[in-house]
Computed example of a mutant assay.
Amino acid sequence: MHTTEAKRRYRTVFLSDIHLGTRGCRSDFLVDFLNRVECEKLFLVGDIVDGWRLRKSWYWDASHDEVIRLLLQAARNGTEVIYIPGNHDEVLRDWLGMEIAGVRLVNEAVHTGADGRRYLVIHGDQFDSVVRYAKFLAHLGDWAYDTALTMNRWFNAARRRFGYPYWSLSQWLKRQVKEAVKAIDRFEGALAQEARRRGLDGVVCGHIHHAEMRMVQGVLYMNDGDWVESCTALVEHADGRFELVDWARENRLSFFRSESRPLAAAA
């Protein structure tokens, strides 16, 4: 998918929920994205590596290696790379305050935009009551989500046979479950309230795999999505304007072709 077209230049890029180490990770699309953008500052907003999954079974392919290589290359080339661990890579929270290969590890950050507005940058699992108070339910939910992604691969294999494009079954299921919608609303409200409590103009987070940018309780709530289904990134332009980039939608033809690979090869 990599082309020789001019690179897109952004002031800041925010990525989260890549989940390297899982079969559902769209590392191929992320490699394409990283090859085609440049930025002054790169925030990795948690769940970059999925430690939960890797403890159960090891999965790592060449494109996972390439993602790591490109992130470290960006740091070497002068991009300020800040890694905010999430719940799936929480082991890295033991190393907060350290800098590894040019990547700085912090629990959270306050980002000042080009226009002077200030934003809390945090993974967000701290504001998820299930993760905080019922971790076994979080692991159960992780298993259910992984099962949905497996079903999704078979479902789309059947769709391809009839000439239909890729469609996310698991995202559709989440939208249909009222309690899931309520949980997303509670999560967004809690993050917005925390940003407002600190006197900030907005918040950037990840965690729930739901890309969004809207005003909530008087502050700008921005979730950069994930690289499992939606393949989205949040970017800041030189003038301080933010935009959600939907890499799957922009490259839908390539995405459909890559989904068309044999299931055995994708496993």
Rank of each mutant, 00 (worst) to 15 (best):
T79P: 04
K41F: 00
V110R: 07
D28N: 11
R93C: 02
G46P: 05
G24W: 08
R69D: 07
L42R: 01
L72I: 07
F127P: 06
E66Q: 12
A62S: 06
A101I: 01
N107D: 07
V49S: 00
G86S: 09
S57D: 10
R76W: 03
G124S: 09
Q73M: 03
R76S: 15
I82Y: 00
S63E: 15
R23P: 03
N77G: 08
G113A: 10
I84Y: 02
L105F: 04
L70H: 05
R53P: 05
R117V: 07
I82D: 03
S27T: 10
A62H: 09
L72F: 14
V67S: 03
Q73F: 07
G86D: 04
A74D: 03
R36P: 02
R23A: 08
K56V: 12
R104I: 01
G113E: 07
A114R: 10
S57N: 15
D115R: 06
H123T: 06
V121C: 13
V91A: 08
V91G: 06
R23C: 10
Y83R: 06
D125G: 06
F127Y: 14
S63R: 14
H64F: 08
I48G: 04
G116I: 09
H123M: 12
N35G: 10
E80R: 15
L96F: 02
T22E: 13
V31D: 01
